[in-house]
Nucleic acid binder design. Structure first.
Length: 196
DNA sequence: CTTTAGAAACATG
DNA sequence: CATGTTTCTAAAG
């Protein structure tokens, strides 16, 4: 998967090259409605919402202050199957490979990309995530960065839990986090016996 | 309008 | 209560 990243330095370099064209749309997913946004460089935003999309929309504007937003569900619709059914034959889903366009600080980008390596059914703690990027004392900072994940589900922030085994937080509702995790249970390798 | 400094906020341990 | 990073606010330049 090709990922284009944009950190604060790039932002400076790029300077004011004018507003970035961006299409967005609201679409149903297996886990509720989602707001999805796309630039010419790829999928840049995916966020669940419940009844009202206004909060989700303002979050999108906040993440991309100088984007020129235009509602265009036809442009974003194909992304839904691409994201939520990644195991189906590619030919049915993707004329082009799924690309991501991520914007964040270096730290955030590091966390998000590390998160992409956590497979379905797998869990990792905020602490271990911190360890895995070589910053053993940054667990809380990690929590913060994880919470700002711009592409829900695809970047599986729902697979991050507390060290003590409790579920931890989730931006769009603990209930949704539980639902997401439950849907992945079949993927887990469970030994034949006595879990508990 | 841009920069700076300091405080406050956090999906933790 | 310490932790690291980001965001918010106020004040200058």
């Amino acid at each position: 998967m090709l990922i284009t990243t944009e950190n604060s330095k790039d932002r400076q370099q790029h300077g004011r090259s004018g507003p970035i064209p961006m299409s967005y749309g609201k679409h149903p997913t297996p886990f509720g409605e989602a707001l999805v946004a796309l630039t010419h460089l790829g999928l840049c935003h995916l966020d669940f919402f419940d009844d009202d999309s206004t909060t989700a929309l303002s979050q999108l504007r906040k993440n991309w202050p100088h984007a020129n937003l235009r509602e265009d569900p036809d442009a974003t619709a194909p992304l839904i199957p691409a994201v939520f059914t990644p195991h189906l034959p590619l030919s049915l889903l993707q004329p082009m490979p799924l690309r991501l366009h991520l914007r964040g600080t270096d730290f955030q980008l590091k966390i998000w990309q590390r998160l992409l390596q956590v497979p379905p059914g797998n869990l990792i703690s905020y602490q271990d995530l911190a360890l895995s990027i070589g910053q053993p004392t940054a667990a809380r900072a990690v929590g913060r960065a994880v919470g700002q994940n711009p592409i829900c589900y695809l970047i599986p922030c729902h697979r991050v839990v507390r060290s003590d085994g409790s579920i931890g937080g989730y931006r769009s509702g603990i209930a949704r986090k539980e639902k997401l995790l439950a849907s992945e249970i079949p993927h887990r390798k469970s030994g034949s016996g006595t879990p508990v």
